[in-house]
Each structure stands twice: as C-alpha cells, then as structure tokens.
C-alpha cells in the first residue's frame, strides 16, 4: 500500500485517536501514516455493533413483557455473559440465572441489588424500577 492510498474513511474512533498504518512513501520506504478508518472495517464493525444492539433490544422487550428481570437486560447492555457477570459480582452463575426470573428478582435483598447496580454502574433505582426509566 502506498502512502497516498491509506484510506481515510471516517469510522468509529470518535475523534479520540487514529489508527497507525504502515505504507510506502514516494521512495519506497515504509512510514507510519495515521488513518481515521477504512470502509471495509467500518462495515464489519457496524455489523457487529448492530448485532449487539439487536440483542440488547430483545432483552429490553423481554423485560418489559415480564419474561426476564432487568438483570438480564443490563447484562446484555454491558456486553457481558453469565461468566463475566458472575466474576464481577461474585454471585454464582446458577444463582444469577434464577435472578433472571422476574418473580425471583423482586424478592432479592437490597445488598444483592446494590451488587448488581454497582457492577452495571447504575443506581439501585434504575435497576429495580425498570419501566420508570425505560420507555416502551
């Protein structure tokens, strides 16, 4: 790849940094060139983000329909799985699975709510009053 051909297709770096690419200058020597993005990789990342957002939206609907507890939604929203959530909260995977059930969830103790809320970086109220904070 030549220096002038290093793509500059605005992507997902959000102005926070640019990618270092290696390309050839006019004398055929390799140099570093900064790039804001490249269309094919933007497409691949967009596809992955869309997939994640679909999963989050599915989870949200499930919670609003009463099929799952807010813990399930926030797990998806934080891109976690059972294993990661279990490691961060110190609550075992099978217990978390039970906390996914709305009937079980409403009976949890305050300190358990707090553990989840801290892990998700939200207030206990946002966790327990889901419908108040989430629009249909």
């Amino acid at each position: 790849m030549k220096k002038d051909n290093v793509p500059q297709d605005e992507g997902f770096l959000g102005g926070k940094t640019r990618d270092v690419c290696y390309a050839l200058d006019e004398n055929g020597n390799y140099v570093q060139v900064l790039s804001v993005g490249w269309e094919p990789k933007n497409a691949a990342l967009e596809q992955a983000l869309n997939l994640v957002n679909e999963q989050i939206e599915d989870a949200r609907e499930k919670v609003l329909k009463g099929q799952a507890s807010p813990i399930f939604y926030f797990m998806e929203k934080n891109l976690m799985d059972l294993k990661i959530l279990s490691q961060y909260t110190g609550i075992s995977k099978w217990k978390i699975k039970r906390h996914f059930k709305p009937a079980k969830f409403i009976k949890l103790k305050d300190n358990v709510y707090k553990k989840y809320a801290d892990t998700f970086n939200i207030s206990v109220d946002e966790l327990t009053n889901f419908t108040k904070h989430q629009k249909l």
Partner: peptide, 15 residues
C-alpha cells in the same frame, strides 16, 4: 466474515 475482517484490520494490526 465480519469477525475475520475485524481481527485482520482492527486497531493494532497496522493493516
């Protein structure tokens, strides 16, 4: 396919 592209091009590979 998308995952292969991301592994190949994402931050860090220099292209």
């Amino acid at each position: 396919l998308g995952q292969v592209i991301r592994m190949m091009e994402e931050i860090g590979t220099g292209g």
